[in-house]
Simulated scan of single mutants.
Amino acid sequence: MNMPKLARMSASPLPDGSVFWLADGTRCPYCDTVLRCDPEPLANGASFRLICQSCHHDIICVD
């Protein structure tokens, strides 16, 4: 029986103490670039967004 491979995960701490996890190899749906696990904290510290470093589209935004 073949078992599916599990993706490795990268983690980045957020200012509020929580951790953002992203599967390695996740690609931008707009330009197909591999995304880095580098979320950008927003003003209140509990919010963040992940943008593509290549095309600069928002990928995830949590308010």
Rank of each mutant, 00 (worst) to 15 (best):
M1H: 14
M1I: 13
N2S: 06
N2I: 00
M3G: 02
P4L: 01
P4G: 01
K5A: 15
K5W: 11
L6I: 12
L6N: 10
L6W: 06
A7E: 06
A7M: 05
A7S: 11
A7V: 02
R8M: 15
R8L: 15
R8K: 15
M9A: 15
S10M: 11
S10H: 09
S10Q: 13
S12I: 00
S12C: 12
S12L: 01
P13D: 14
P13L: 13
L14C: 12
L14A: 11
L14D: 08
P15Y: 10
P15Q: 11
P15R: 11
D16K: 13
D16W: 13
G17M: 07
G17Y: 06
G17W: 06
G17A: 08
V19C: 06
V19N: 00
F20M: 09
F20P: 01
F20Y: 15
F20R: 03
W21M: 15
L22M: 15
A23V: 04
A23H: 08
D24I: 10
D24H: 09
G25L: 10
G25P: 09
T26R: 09
T26P: 02
R27V: 15
R27W: 08
C28D: 04
C28Y: 03
C28M: 06
P29C: 09
P29Q: 07
P29M: 07
Y30K: 03
C31I: 07
C31Y: 04
C31G: 07
C31W: 03
D32E: 07
D32M: 06
D32I: 00
D32Y: 02
T33Q: 02
T33N: 00
T33M: 00
T33S: 01
V34R: 10
V34M: 08
L35I: 14
R36G: 01
R36Q: 04
C37V: 11
D38E: 14
D38L: 10
D38S: 14
P39E: 05
P39N: 10
E40K: 09
E40T: 11
E40G: 02
P41A: 10
P41C: 04
P41Q: 07
P41L: 03
P41K: 05
L42R: 08
L42V: 07
L42P: 02
L42A: 07
L42S: 08
L42C: 08
L42Q: 10
A43G: 06
A43L: 07
N44V: 00
N44G: 01
G45H: 05
G45C: 03
G45W: 03
G45S: 05
A46H: 09
A46Y: 04
S47E: 09
S47T: 05
F48M: 11
R49T: 03
R49G: 02
R49V: 03
L50H: 01
L50K: 01
I51K: 08
I51E: 05
I51W: 01
I51C: 11
Q53G: 14
Q53L: 03
Q53V: 00
Q53F: 01
S54W: 00
S54D: 06
S54T: 05
S54V: 01
C55T: 04
C55W: 03
H56F: 13
H56I: 04
H56K: 15
H56C: 12
H57A: 12
H57I: 10
D58G: 07
D58Y: 13
D58A: 14
I59T: 11
I59E: 08
I60M: 13
I60F: 12
C61P: 02
V62N: 13
D63F: 14
D63P: 12
D63T: 14
D63K: 13
